[in-house]
Design a protein around this nucleic acid. Structure first.
Length: 171
DNA sequence: TTAGTGATATCC
DNA sequence: GATATCACTAAA
């Protein structure tokens, strides 16, 4: 079953752990179907969250974060890595889930590289396209939490917030 | 541990 | 127009 926008129309802290175990299905232009189960996500949410891109204010780049739940936010990091997020929460609140790891490809940039996701997916809905969608096959892994990584610049208390969600059975 | 890479935001 | 920053990876 394909996950619709209702899934993302709620608080990021509820949606992020539930996204773990879901499957990203990516269909390439030539018809190749790539599947990757999500094993790790991170929640970025709230204007107060200094680790969230949108915390510094609404700009052209972060505008996506304020948009409709369920759309994809793709961000180029360090000049060569695409990171994929999915927007959650109501419109007007900057919340998003970072897809951090897949079952096979660990690392946010490896995942997008494998799935052929780039800037052209920025701002597209993930429930209404043939080339990318998210499926729920009923798998419900046990989740453990951990602090987020790579956000030292945000400072406390955000560094130690347990807003990283990892599938328990992950190697 | 360090180099590589480029869009964005912030400073002249 | 110029620079500093950055939710990373690969190679060593």
């Amino acid at each position: 079953m394909i996950i619709g926008r209702e899934f993302f129309s709620r608080n990021v802290l509820e949606a992020a752990p539930e996204l773990v175990g879901k499957i990203i299905v990516r269909t390439l232009p030539d018809g190749t179907e790539l599947r990757e189960r999500i094993t790790e996500t991170e929640a970025y949410g709230g204007e107060e969250d200094k680790a969230c891109h949108a915390s510094k204010g609404r700009t052209k780049r972060t505008e996506i974060l304020y948009g409709e739940p369920g759309i994809i936010y793709v961000y180029l990091c360090y000049g060569m890595h695409w990171l994929m997020n999915i927007i959650t929460g109501e419109e007007g609140r900057p919340q998003g889930i970072l897809i951090r790891c897949g079952e096979v490809h660990n690392g946010p940039a490896k995942l997008t590289k494998y799935l052929h996701i780039d800037g052209s997916f920025n701002g597209v809905p993930c429930w209404d396209r043939d080339d990318i969608r998210i499926e729920d096959d009923g798998y419900r892994p046990a989740i453990r939490t951990a602090p987020r990584v790579g956000i030292d610049y945000a400072g406390e208390p955000w560094i130690s917030k347990p807003w990283r969600f990892i599938a328990e059975d992950k190697v």
